Amino acid sequence: MTSIDIARVDERHASWERPAWRYRVYVQGGASVGGTEAPGGTTATYDVTGADVLQVLDWAQRRAGASATYSIALVVDEPHDGRGLVWLVGMDGNDWTDEPHDRLVQERMLARRTDPVVVPEADRMPVEVRVRPWAG
């Protein structure tokens, strides 16, 4: 089992914050490993801006439906390292691994297809938001 640690901290212990973020959503489906269903496979990737993480979670869940998995990452641009991802929900389903922590994450990704996260009405993504054509 994963070792989870929660520590109390001083809320002033941060040197910066941003009011808006870019989230990367992976919607994946159709993968199996050794005959066992797995997250991953075909992948559709989206960048979402102008929303908070609950709205992104709601949209990703609806986009994936009951047959695909989803994962959400925070996109961070570092001056020396370039663009990177911080996983907030799930992981890249195509990262096959035997690490116990990663297997648990993948199992939870699969379970969310039939037992989705409940997002309150006030935090849902507006239904009129549409995906723009390929941005490159």
Rank of each mutant, 00 (worst) to 15 (best):
Q55T: 05
Q55N: 04
Q55R: 12
Q55G: 14
V56F: 01
L57Y: 01
D58R: 00
D58F: 00
D58L: 02
W59H: 00
A60W: 03
A60F: 05
Q61T: 13
R62V: 05
R62T: 07
R63V: 00
G65S: 02
G65R: 03
G65W: 03
G65F: 03
A66F: 04
A66W: 03
A66Y: 00
S67F: 07
S67E: 10
S67V: 08
S67G: 11
A68L: 00
A68C: 11
Y70F: 15
Y70K: 06
Y70R: 02
Y70W: 08
Y70V: 06
S71Q: 05
S71K: 05
I72L: 05
I72A: 04
I72Y: 01
A73T: 02
A73M: 01
A73Q: 02
L74A: 10
L74G: 07
V75I: 09
V75R: 08
V76L: 12
V76R: 12
V76E: 12
V76W: 07
D77P: 01
D77T: 14
D77V: 15
D77G: 10
D77H: 14
D77N: 15
E78M: 11
E78T: 14
E78L: 15
E78Y: 13
E78V: 13
P79D: 13
H80L: 11
H80M: 08
D81N: 14
D81A: 15
G82H: 10
G82W: 09
G82E: 08
G82R: 09
G82Y: 10
R83K: 14
R83D: 11
R83G: 13
G84P: 12
G84W: 09
G84V: 11
L85M: 09
L85N: 11
V86G: 11
V86F: 12
W87H: 12
W87F: 13
